[in-house]
Design a binder for these strands. Structure first.
Lengths: 124, 124
DNA sequence: AAACTGTTATATAATGCGTATAACAGTGAG
DNA sequence: CTCACTGTTATACGCATTATATAACAGTTT
């Protein structure tokens, strides 16, 4: 999985890392149990500190995208908490759509965007 | 417009303020030219510092939701940059939907959410 | 003139971010 | 068993951001 960080972004590096890994899980359909690179390995490959990667992994674990296996290291293991996930999505959508509505983006356009993006994902 | 800040949130106060004002514009259908409370007035009414409100207003101005009129103070004035707004929405949707996809939230469920939220907004 | 607007300048304390070095306990391969 | 690897933890430093506090300035309105 290719990781590209924007060092000029106002988004924290560990957040960018989390997001890209989550998108990676959604697009690549990685199987449960597939290993992530080790913290040191990934840190070196993108040229950042080990602890920054570790923080991202910790967040991913806490949000239920990853589990840690002493034998294999960090491993994809999505735990499904649909109610919670729906609640959070709704909360974020509320402000995202408010922005869109102010800028004259129609409901239909948003639907089209959703379909376009979802094509790359699970396709449910 | 009612503003309620969560002082325990990890989201900065001025960001919460921006978001609530944007939602307010979208829901209340405020007309162009309607005034916002003055920085000092709003700051006192929610019990925070004047500069925190001022920062929120500055961001809103820079993002094209507000203009400043020396006579009336801060005033609703949405400048429409659809291309830019679409681009930003797409970027944010990509990670938001990735999260949803991982948590088994279907495309149809997202569409339903969109419709539900958009009912409160412009309704375009 | 007085009361209000946004704006700007400093200053300070608290927090978060990223880096750095170091060490520890568990696991797998030789 | 030893060596190299895993995640994890602790401590420390520099830096930027956040939120606060006083204070002042230039316009506008009454």
């Amino acid at each position: 999985m290719l990781i590209e960080l924007d060092f000029n972004s106002d988004e924290a590096l560990y957040i960018q890392l989390c997001n890209q890994i989550i998108v990676g899980i959604a697009t690549a359909r990685i199987r449960e149990g597939d290993p992530l690179p080790s913290v040191r390995q990934l840190a070196e490959s993108i040229g950042i500190n080990m602890h920054t990667v570790n923080k991202a992994y910790t967040v991913l674990k806490q949000e239920g995208y990853v589990k840690v296996d002493r034998r294999k290291g960090a491993v994809i293991a999505v735990d499904i908490d649909r109610l919670r996930a729906l609640e959070e999505m709704k909360k974020e959508l509320r402000v995202l759509l408010a922005r869109g509505s102010c800028k004259n983006i129609s409901r239909a356009e948003v639907h089209a965007l959703i379909d376009e993006i979802y094509q790359d994902y699970g396709g449910l």
